[in-house]
Amino acid sequence: MSRKFWNWVKNEDDTRTLYLEGAIAEETWYGDEITPKQFKSELFNGNGDITIWINSPGGDVFCASQIYNMLMDYKGKVTVKIDGIAASAASVIAMAGEEVLISPTGLIMIHNPMTMAFGDTEEMQKAIAMLSEVKESIINAYEIKTGLSRVKLSNFMDSETWFNAKKAVELGFADNILFSEQNKDSVESQAITFSNMAITNSLLSKFKSTIIKDVGTPYEVLNKRLDLLKY
Rank of each mutant, 00 (worst) to 15 (best):
M1W: 05
K4Q: 15
K4V: 15
F5T: 14
V9C: 13
K10R: 11
K10I: 07
N11V: 07
E12D: 13
E12C: 08
D14E: 15
Y19M: 10
L20H: 01
G22C: 07
E27F: 13
T28V: 15
W29Y: 11
I34S: 10
K37F: 09
Q38T: 15
F39P: 09
F39S: 07
F39T: 06
K40D: 00
K40P: 01
L43A: 07
F44M: 09
N45D: 10
N45M: 07
G46H: 14
N47R: 13
G48H: 07
T51E: 12
T51S: 14
N55D: 14
C63P: 07
S65M: 09
Q66I: 02
I67W: 02
Y68K: 13
N69M: 03
N69C: 03
L71C: 06
M72L: 12
D73V: 01
D73H: 10
Y74W: 01
G76L: 03
G76I: 03
K77V: 09
K81Y: 12
D83H: 11
D83I: 11
A87E: 03
A87V: 03
A89Y: 00
I93H: 00
I93T: 05
A94K: 02
G97W: 04
V100T: 14
S103T: 13
G106R: 04
I108S: 02
M109N: 12
M109W: 01
H111G: 02
N112Y: 11
P113K: 05
P113G: 02
M114V: 11
M114Y: 12
D120S: 11
T121N: 15
E122G: 12
E122P: 02
Q125K: 13
K126S: 14
S132L: 01
E133N: 08
E133A: 05
V134G: 00
E136L: 13
E136I: 10
I138D: 00
A141L: 02
E143W: 13
K145R: 13
K145M: 08
G147D: 01
S149D: 05
S149R: 03
R150V: 09
V151K: 14
K152S: 11
F156C: 04
M157S: 04
E160Y: 12
E160D: 14
N164I: 08
A168Q: 05
E170W: 01
E170T: 08
L171Y: 08
G172P: 04
G172I: 04
F173C: 07
A174S: 13
I177P: 00
Q182V: 14
N183G: 05
K184T: 14
E188P: 00
S189Y: 08
A191V: 04
A191K: 08
A191S: 03
I192L: 12
T193S: 05
T193V: 04
F194Q: 11
M197E: 10
A198I: 05
I199V: 10
I199E: 06
T200C: 06
N201A: 08
N201H: 10
S202A: 09
S202E: 10
L203K: 02
S205R: 15
K206N: 06
K208S: 13
K208N: 14
T210W: 10
T210P: 04
K213F: 12
D214K: 11
V215K: 09
G216P: 00
G216F: 03
T217A: 08
T217D: 12
T217N: 01
T217G: 06
P218D: 06
E220N: 12
V221D: 01
V221N: 06
V221R: 14
L222E: 13
N223K: 08
K224T: 06
R225H: 02
D227I: 11
L228A: 01
L228T: 00
Y231S: 06
Y231G: 05
